[in-house]
């Protein structure tokens, strides 16, 4: 990164005194188009969602004010509670598997022959869409001729062959495996950026002291890498909490509504069942949780930037 110039010290550009009005207006002409796009397509709908969450609204007749009814109903609704439980499972798994594996791969590939090639291959799944990954893996998990069951039957473990995407809770685990396959590369790259930024001196010193292998990783490298572990974990929580595409193409939240997460439940209530006020309340719940973690995430990123 190039150093930021201290522009506050630079002299202001003074325009001839004859055109003060124009000078006043010009900056707005640059900022307003972007601001209008964001305000019209993002901020305005957001405010409406917050408002709608306090109403009963089917999308056709006029909304009626409902206070906190929707939120109270949510926590009495078995679909919502199951969905909430699934979301917690997803979030925890999204941290444990892709982040841990990402860290292991980053450590393993940073010092090995063909390291660049390995990194690229592991990252490739992250370049395709979650929808595409979901479609491909629904073939891998197919009961009759999916690759996984074929291999299991081939090595004499046909008892383990399952209806991966139709049994509960197996289907959630199958989808998390797909998610892990896709996300690990991204986390690995973030850890590699972190590893590259580590100062070499403490590591050299530790090596001279005879600290090697796993000991070196545990005592020296991991502690120095900790800010990146925190950032990657928080990012994984925020992303894991919002998963939609993958579930939508693999199970649509089914069978029934057994594998829904909050993002899927929100979509189903709003766009299939047309309970828009109720759906808005779910959106608010998702946002509050995601915002809390985003706050910690941004704070860690800014702290890390300030440290560099």
């Amino acid at each position: 990164m190039t150093a930021t110039l201290d522009h506050t010290a630079a002299p202001l550009i003074r325009r001839p005194a004859g055109r003060p009005l124009r000078q006043l207006v010009v900056p707005y002409l640059y900022v307003l188009p972007a601001a209008l796009f964001v305000a019209a397509f993002l901020l305005y709908p957001m405010v409406l969602t917050a408002w709608r969450s306090l109403t009963h609204f089917d999308g056709i007749s006029d909304p009626t004010f409902a206070g906190l009814d929707n939120f109270r109903d949510l926590f009495a609704d078995p679909h919502f509670l199951l969905s909430l439980r699934n979301t917690v499972i997803w979030t925890v798994a999204a941290v444990i598997f892709p982040v841990t594996l990402g860290l292991v791969f980053a450590l393993a590939f940073s010092r090995v022959r063909w390291g660049g090639f390995f990194k690229t291959v592991i990252y490739l799944p992250a370049t395709i869409s979650a929808a595409a990954a979901g479609i491909l893996f629904s073939f891998v998990f197919n009961y009759d001729n999916g690759i996984l069951n074929m291999i299991l039957r081939g090595i004499g473990l046909s008892g383990l062959a399952s209806r991966w995407l139709f049994d509960v809770p197996t289907n959630t685990f199958a989808m998390i495996a797909t998610y892990t396959w896709q996300q690990t590369g991204l986390n690995m790259m973030l850890f590699l950026v972190g590893l590259q930024g580590l100062p070499p001196e403490p590591i050299e010193a530790a090596k001279i002291e005879g600290c090697t292998g796993w000991n070196l990783v545990r005592r020296i490298i991991l502690p120095m890498l900790m800010p990146y572990v925190v950032i990657t974990t928080l990012l994984a929580i925020v992303n894991g909490f919002k998963v939609f595409d993958l579930i939508w193409v693999m199970t649509q939240g089914g069978p029934g509504r057994a594998s829904e997460t909050l993002a899927v439940t929100m979509y189903r209530e709003g766009f299939i069942l047309f309970k828009q006020g109720y759906s808005a309340a779910i959106a608010v719940v998702i946002s509050v949780v995601a915002l809390a973690f985003s706050y910690f995430y941004l704070r860690s990123v800014l702290e890390q930037e300030a440290r560099q």
Partner: peptide, 28 residues
């Protein structure tokens, strides 16, 4: 060009990326 209240305009535009997508789907 140092628009007056630059921080306000920055936050106004940046706030579009802070909320999860679910927050604007239905009204949109």
């Amino acid at each position: 060009l140092r628009i007056p209240q630059g921080m306000f305009w920055f936050l106004l535009i940046y706030s579009g990326t802070i909320f999860p997508f679910q927050m604007y789907l239905i009204p949109l």
